[in-house]
């Protein structure tokens, strides 16, 4: 029994790591641009399919495919910003609707290019670490955990140590004030969209060998990401990470000891509860005067 609990903890840590990447990306986009990106799950899917195309089908090294996945999906984000979100800057509902349109386009592109069936990806490594008797952490999952921690640390340093990071945080606090300070909103938005999308893409690329991608995999991802950002407080980067860990543990444990559907329901009810009781999120700002 204790082995099962330990194994579940290991699984939850893995889930928390890539969910954090996705949720932080979504929060970054929302914080800076004020738009909910419904296509975020499809950006994750796009990252996974970059690995399908470059690694599984063309034989490129896995890690190279992952990096290219980050860059490619980041560029997709840039495309979204330039073609959709910038023209719709004063229309947040319009931005959301446009992102739904983009979602359909990405999904159909994947269907046309790769078919609707699950893509099979040969695992880059079969090795695993046996932590205790029976408690296993595969190298592939370990890689996801390490990469997530590394990327989030890099992001933290970027946001807190560089001029661009500072500008981005200023925009997330108050866009108008930031603009008055001479920060270029367009530049910061492009950057936020590149990073936010890139994080979703790299999460998809890293986990691709573990999940068997389908063109419709984005749906459950966006639901999860919404739960996390609502629980963590919309616009709160640290909150998103804490909420991702919380959600991953709750979901993994309920899945292991009850059932996947019950776990999904639990997650959604958790989010509804937060929405009702404290809509600013568990880690969100307190009510202002």
């Amino acid at each position: 029994m204790s082995d099962l609990i330990l194994q579940t903890i290991v699984n939850a840590v893995y889930a928390a790591s890539y969910m954090s990447l996705i949720a932080v990306g979504l929060v970054l986009i929302f914080g800076v641009m004020g738009v909910i990106n419904f296509a975020h799950g499809e950006l994750y899917m796009a990252g996974a399919y970059v690995v399908v195309a470059l690694y599984a089908e063309s034989g490129m090294p896995f890690l190279v495919a992952v990096v290219l996945g980050l860059v490619f999906v980041g560029l997709l984000g840039l495309l979204m910003e330039i073609s959709l979100f910038r023209p719709l800057r004063d229309n947040p509902l319009g931005g959301l609707i446009a992102s739904i349109g983009f979602l359909l386009i990405l999904q159909t592109t994947a269907v046309l290019g790769f078919g609707v069936r699950m893509a099979h990806i040969p695992p880059p490594t079969q090795e695993k670490i046996e932590l205790l008797n029976g408690v296993v952490l595969t190298h592939q999952r370990l890689l996801v955990i390490i990469a997530s921690v590394a990327l989030l640390s890099l992001l933290y340093l970027f946001l807190h140590r560089t001029k661009y990071g500072w500008a981005m945080r200023a925009c997330a606090q108050d866009r108008e004030a930031a603009a008055l300070q001479g920060i270029s909103l367009s530049q910061v938005s492009r950057l936020a969209m590149f990073i936010g999308a890139g994080l979703a893409g790299v999460a998809g690329a890293l986990t691709a060998p573990l999940v068997s991608p389908t063109p419709y995999m984005g749906h459950s991802v966006i639901v999860t990401a919404f739960i996390i950002i609502i629980v963590g407080g919309i616009g709160q980067l640290e909150g998103a990470i804490v909420a991702a860990i919380l959600y991953a543990f709750v979901h993994t444990f309920v899945t292991t000891f009850f059932d996947g559907v019950i776990a999904d329901i639990t997650g959604l009810l958790l989010m509804l509860m937060v929405l009702v009781i404290k809509p600013t999120g568990l880690f969100g700002a307190k009510d202002r005067v």
């Binding site: 319009g94 609707i97 349109g101 359909l104 386009i105 999904q107 159909t108």
Partner: peptide, 16 residues
Amino acid sequence: TARPMIYGFILIASVL
């Protein structure tokens, strides 16, 4: 199969 994509384009075009 391409129909959802065309819907996507219609949606974006109409919002824009």
